[in-house]
């Protein structure tokens, strides 16, 4: 990057926050969140504006997004899934655009910070618990003791079920965060190889083609991961909401 003599691989420097408006604690991470929100709104606004019977490309994109998430909600949660459509849609596109924006050069991946993903998971967790309590009242607590299990085992089953329920709070954010961090660290490492080999004469310059090629392949893979992780987060939210609505 600069003229420092020993080239080192600074794989984690890309996740450092730098203040944009220091007084507010407003970092580049927050800037990209706003960009993601603006892009989602723009996609829907410009996608819906033509209102053609036969949709054009952009309208087809917006309709596909709408119908895809709506299908996910109704098929997973059931008929009541429509009520949760706005939430799941927002969640999906916030994560998806976060992942995709992070793949652009000079950008920042806010989904690579566990604070962000954990907050999202906390919102999901609180929502599912509140929904379950609102629909089922105190009957919700029977969720922690499966019907037909021997009462003698209650001291064992209830803590295990509670831990299993709470573990969603960890497994959901860690999955997204770990995928994003791993992908970006790999980008950085192989890109550093290119720079290092490129500085090592003719042989190094030729050899540098290989890590460059790996990064090209990696970019395709990361595009897949960006979609897949947003999808996984959304569908797991739907499954948790299904459990909350139906209590198994």
């Amino acid at each position: 990057m600069n003229e420092a003599p020993p080239p080192t691989i600074d794989a984690l420097g890309q996740f450092r926050l730098s203040p944009v408006i220091g007084a507010l604690g407003f970092s580049q991470s927050n800037v990209f969140m706003l960009v993601a929100a603006a892009l989602t709104l723009a996609m829907l606004y410009f996608g819906m504006r033509p209102r053609a019977v036969v949709p054009g490309r952009f309208q087809a994109l917006a309709e596909f997004a709408y119908e895809g998430i709506m299908g996910m909600c109704t098929s997973t949660i059931g008929h009541d899934g429509r009520k949760f459509f706005p939430f799941v849609f927002t969640l999906f596109f916030f994560i998806l655009f976060g992942n995709l924006l992070g793949l652009l050069p000079f950008s920042f991946t806010y989904t690579s910070h566990i604070v962000v993903t954990f907050t999202l998971a906390l919102i999901v967790f609180l929502l599912t618990t509140i929904v379950a309590l609102a629909i089922h009242g105190t009957h919700f607590f029977s969720y922690f003791f499966p019907k037909g299990a021997p009462v003698l085992l209650a001291p064992l089953i209830v803590p295990v079920e509670i831990i299993s329920y709470l573990s969603r709070l960890i497994s959901l954010p860690v999955r997204l965060f770990a995928n994003m961090v791993a992908g970006h660290v790999m980008f950085e490492v192989f890109a550093s190889f290119v720079v290092m080999l490129g500085g090592a004469g003719l042989v190094g310059g030729i050899a540098a083609i290989f890590p460059l090629g790996i990064n090209v392949i990696l970019m395709g893979f990361e595009l897949l991961v960006a979609f897949l992780q947003a999808y996984v987060f959304a569908i797991l939210t739907c499954i948790y909401l299904h459990d909350a609505v139906h209590l198994h």
């Binding site: 098929s75 997973t76 831990i163 299993s164 709470l166 573990s167 969603r168 709070l169 960890i170 497994s171 860690v174 999955r175 770990a178 897949l228 999808y231 996984v232 569908i235 797991l236 499954i239 299904h242």
Partner: peptide, 29 residues
């Protein structure tokens, strides 16, 4: 429509990561 309980079950990698995440996260909690 079949409700898939394991969306990541497309690949062995996905299954492995999923199982690891589940085991570790409940232990952490």
């Amino acid at each position: 429509p079949v409700v898939t309980r394991e969306p990541e079950a497309f690949s062995p990698w996905g299954i492995g990561l999923r199982v690891g995440a589940e085991l570790v996260s409940s232990l952490v909690v």
